[in-house]
């Protein structure tokens, strides 16, 4: 490979995975006031993978650029990713607007071109809207190969060939493609590190640039309108049984056996 790796890692700030989301009182969306937000867990795995590649391939990685489209609050997930080892960061400030995956992919594609990125690693989906779209859309816009739900990534930096093991229905598959490419991450790829205090301090000095969607030439108006949100009906309360015989009798009574 003639040029070095320029990795982009798009990340999203989402409601923390341990919080059970509730419908807001206006029934227009999910309650966000007083709720803990974190980096989307799959994106945290993407950050970790990029940093691991940089650590393992000494000198092969020129930069890791972490990017988030969100409100100014998304700066916290950018700082956290810088503390874990990313080099530079960009906030695409969309204010409080909720932006659809296609819009995000268009903005990321523009940044990737400006940046001359040749490897983009991001979570397979965000755990809020569960769309599982952005990586594949970005690959489509850039006309790059895509490998989704990666569980193992092996880069040959001299040939630019990347071998990826990824999860498919009924098992896993190993494939390869040439840079530039897009990889989306699954949970088994790695275990993200915690940022250390000295690195958190150092990250405060790393670059964080803010751009507006208009700077990237993208209109953020979406195509989707939320008609309603609801919580699934609760299951009727179950009963406690005290023996195997009672369990079998109850299952038969219900027609489940």
């Amino acid at each position: 490979m003639s040029s070095k790796l320029r990795i982009m890692v798009p990340v999203k700030r989402a409601i923390d995975f341990a919080v059970k989301p509730r419908v807001n009182s206006a029934k227009t969306g999910v309650e966000t006031a007083g709720v803990k937000f974190s980096i989307n867990p799959f994106d945290d795995i993407a950050v970790e993978e990029a940093v691991k590649i940089k650590e393992a391939k000494k000198g092969a990685v020129e930069s890791i650029h972490v990017v988030s489209a969100g409100s100014s609050k998304a700066q916290e997930v950018l700082r956290q990713s810088l503390a874990k080892g990313c080099d530079t960061s960009t906030l695409i400030d969309v204010g409080d607007a909720s932006v659809e995956p296609l819009t995000v992919a268009k903005m990321l594609a523009k940044l990737a071109e400006e940046d001359k990125s040749n490897l983009i690693i991001l979570g397979k989906q965000a755990i809020d809207d569960d769309s599982n779209h952005t990586g594949q859309m970005l690959a489509g816009l850039l006309n790059w190969p895509q490998v989704t739900a990666a569980s193992k990534v092996d880069i040959n930096e001299s040939t630019g060939e990347v071998t990826v093991e990824h999860e498919v229905d009924g098992g896993f598959e190993t494939v390869s493609a040439s840079l530039p490419m897009i990889i989306t991450t699954d949970l088994r790829l790695n275990t993200p590190r915690y940022a250390t205090l000295p690195n958190i301090m150092k990250a405060k000095k790393k670059p964080l640039k803010t751009v507006k969607p208009a700077d990237l030439g993208v209109d953020i108006a979406g195509r989707l309108e939320t008609v309603s949100v609801s919580e699934p009906p609760p299951r009727p309360a179950g009963i406690k049984v005290n023996s195997v015989d009672e369990l079998i009798a109850k299952l038969k009574e219900r027609g489940a056996l």
């Binding site: 659809e100 995956p101 296609l102 992919a105 569960d130 769309s131 599982n132 779209h133 952005t134 990586g135 594949q136 859309m137 970005l138 690959a139 489509g140 816009l141 895509q146 989704t148 739900a149 999860e167 498919v168 229905d169 979406g222 195509r223 989707l224």
Partner: peptide, 23 residues
């Protein structure tokens, strides 16, 4: 909503400039 469907529908969305709905 299989690995194949989840893989190509968003890419098709980018090609046609539409926002898919998944799952």
């Amino acid at each position: 909503a299989s690995s194949v469907g989840r893989g190509f529908i968003p890419r098709l969305g980018a090609a046609l400039d539409v926002q898919p709905l998944s799952d």
